[in-house]
Design a protein around this nucleic acid. Structure first.
Lengths: 190, 190, 190, 190
DNA sequence: GATGAATGAGTTTTCATTCAT
DNA sequence: AATGAATGAAAACTCATTCAT
């Protein structure tokens, strides 16, 4: 999820939404994140959002449409996180920035990212697009750093990235600062 | 599916099960793996298994009980996979064996492991016992290899392990042999 | 059944109900009264009411909620029956009015009251509020008539009341007019 | 129930029952009394009795047969209670004995009698037989006491009897001793 | 845009009963 | 006599979706 949704630059315009549409979206996100997509009924969403159930379908055609809309939010959030890469031109700083991302997720956002990660394992379609864009960027960083198999290095880093993020989101990590430093050291970024 | 079940016969104690209970279990596994837990109805399972729907509840109390039974199979399968560690006393060989596991999952077993990985994101209380046991074993290997932060190294390796396995199961990996070698080289196992 | 519902229209606030909700209520009452609560399935009610089964749950949450709604009708009906007490200020007339009630239940309403009486034996927490209110009123009547143990007299009368009503509802009584007169004589009301 | 089942003198022979049949009977009684007939599944009975579910059907053909068998126990218990009438020849003592019965039910037997009373309101068949036998006995007592309408007096007394018993079983009575004395006084038995 | 009544197909689960052993 | 695996029909309840207003 982290991967395929990065860098969808187009940002949906919240200002174009009615207040109620926004409320549906935000509360659906909350419930999907807390209980999963399937375990969340449209009626629960409607109740929590304080709208009629029918309105959900007027705005998002169906439940999956609502999920899709939320996933676009995911893209935007992801793009936002990865935008730190472009804060610097130095490849080392860039790599460090990428590897730091999972350690800096706000705990308040855990539920949201758990949802995004869990979706990877479910639907067929959502998984279609390949990481492509992000992989290219990271491949380029490795190239600048004169790594031999820059593309595979990028793949490997993204796998590690997902492994770390997963562990953090599932609350398996306690000593995150130490871990982060070890990783940075392995990539000779400290 | 049929294949992994021939395997399973040696793992869990099928001899205690009636034929129909076995059939429920194997077909539930198949359907859960293919479509996910929530998207699989007990009636579909019953039909596919050639069994009355009520029998599922006689044997497993409820749908979640069925899932639990399958997850136990998963633990046994996982334990089996990791048993390769004990084939050697040499820590380097052991580490190599562990890191090789994700690359050697049988494609026929992908659906099963996808189910297991996806469950991590759903279940409220995911059984951490197996993975903590594994962490100890790997920590020990790193100790023998004189790594400084052996425990954190073990954690890191398990994260990488999950990242790799996830990528493979989601069919994002094409050049797995090359990747595997790179990883082994990073751990100086080649 | 149709008859008692014309009656009900004046009692409970049907104007707040949609036509279909009304239909569910009236047919559920009919079926519960005829066959008992447990022996009446929601699907039967829905069919008889010409309504989708789901609608029952939309309106009453669950089967018990439907029963509760009916029991409220029962309370209103009961209150209505006992309102005759207030038609006079004379305690003798009042007592006579109360004791006459069971003998004047319309045979068309037997099914309904059988349901109400049968529920006393099932429900864990039977609503005692109405009957305690009634006990007070009758205690007061006995006080005005200078009975010594007015409260216990009221209790006794209510027990007799229930005994009579039960017998009548279970069609054990043939000579009701004679019985009624005997009772009134015992209370010196003739 | 009290009424129609009194004086069925035939006592089913417990000694002819196997241990398991007895266990089924006693535990079914317990569960029916606690939760009602409909709310008690044969599987619960079997579990509590420590027998296989099938055995219930071998011994009692079906669930209703089990209930019938229990109701015969009810007859016996009732006959037992009313046998006090024959302890004396004096009609006053006999009347006193009858009226005392409801006040002397053992609290441990409440559940059983609640079941018996609740059954009156449910099934059609169980209600068929008229009180007859008991009514005759009491009519005779009133005759000996020179009451005018001895038959109606008997009916009335039985109604009162049921009303009192119902109140006691539904735990609505706190001052039972006072009530009992008031009743006995009304019948000039004190 | 927004409501909320209504639906119909589906869900999990229960349960009395049968039957081979 | 006793077991326990198995069934089939029905139970209560859910839910995404539609539609008249």
């Amino acid at each position: 999820m982290s991967i395929q949704f990065h860098f969808l630059i187009f940002v949906s315009d919240y200002s174009l939404m009615t207040e109620k549409k926004e409320k549906i979206l935000s509360h659906a996100l909350q419930l999907f994140a807390e209980n999963g997509f399937n375990a969340t009924s449209t009626s629960k969403i409607a109740k929590l959002a304080g709208v009629s159930e029918g309105l959900i379908f007027r705005h998002f055609s169906n439940k999956e449409g609502l999920l899709l809309a939320i996933m676009e939010l995911g893209n935007e959030k992801a793009a936002d996180l990865f935008s730190v890469i472009h804060a610097s031109d130095d490849p080392k700083s860039q790599l460090k920035a990428v590897l730091s991302i999972p350690f800096e997720i706000e705990p308040t956002e855990y539920a949201f990212w758990k949802l995004m990660y869990s979706l990877k394992w479910q639907a067929k379609e959502y998984d279609a697009s390949m990481s492509s864009e992000l992989k290219k960027v990271i491949t380029n960083i490795f190239k600048k750093l004169n790594y031999k198999n820059s593309e595979e290095e990028a793949e490997l880093l993204l796998m590690l990235f997902d492994g770390i993020a997963s562990s953090i989101l599932l609350k398996k990590v306690e000593n995150s600062e130490k871990l982060k430093n070890m990783i940075l050291k392995k990539y000779q970024l400290l």
